[in-house]
């Protein structure tokens, strides 16, 4: 796992959360920008999961680490599904929660990673 990459990923997830929050405040449903953002976030967490699993030997808390990895990979598709189902401002509100969760989980992954190294 690469600290700089994951740092950028946390930043990107927080930006996505902010854009979703603005969409919620503006009372709009999920549009193409949020959809693309979630798609890119999913690609980014999949790449991160690849790096992380490749270096799993360095991590002491393997079960917890894999749990957080699985969480980050599952959340963006769930948010896309939700954003399509709820065509009001509350779709993007769910995406705020989802993107923020990915940021927090990536932060926990970094902690576990550096604790084991």
């Amino acid at each position: 796992m690469n600290g700089a990459y994951s740092g950028w990923l946390i930043g990107a997830a927080l930006v996505l959360a902010l854009v979703s929050l603005i969409t919620t405040v503006r009372n709009r449903p999920m549009g193409p920008v949020l959809l693309a953002g979630l798609g890119l976030l999913e690609l980014a967490v999949l790449a991160q999961a690849g790096f992380a699993l490749a270096g799993l030997g360095n991590v002491a808390e393997k079960a917890t680490f894999i749990g957080y990895l699985a969480g980050t990979v599952v959340i963006p598709p769930a948010a896309i599904w939700w954003g399509r189902a709820e065509r009001t401002r509350w779709g993007p509100a769910v995406i705020v929660v989802a993107a923020f969760s990915v940021a927090v989980m990536t932060g926990r992954l970094l902690q576990l990673w550096s604790a084991g190294a």
Partner: peptide, 29 residues
């Protein structure tokens, strides 16, 4: 369950996932 209720479901879903898996790891190890 619609509107703002979805946000609650999402937050509780994340907490359900996080708390349960964390407890499972702690109890198992």
């Amino acid at each position: 369950r619609s509107g703002p209720g979805r946000v609650l479901v999402a937050v509780y879903g994340v907490f359900a996932l996080a708390a349960t898996s964390r407890a499972a790891v702690q109890i198992a190890t």
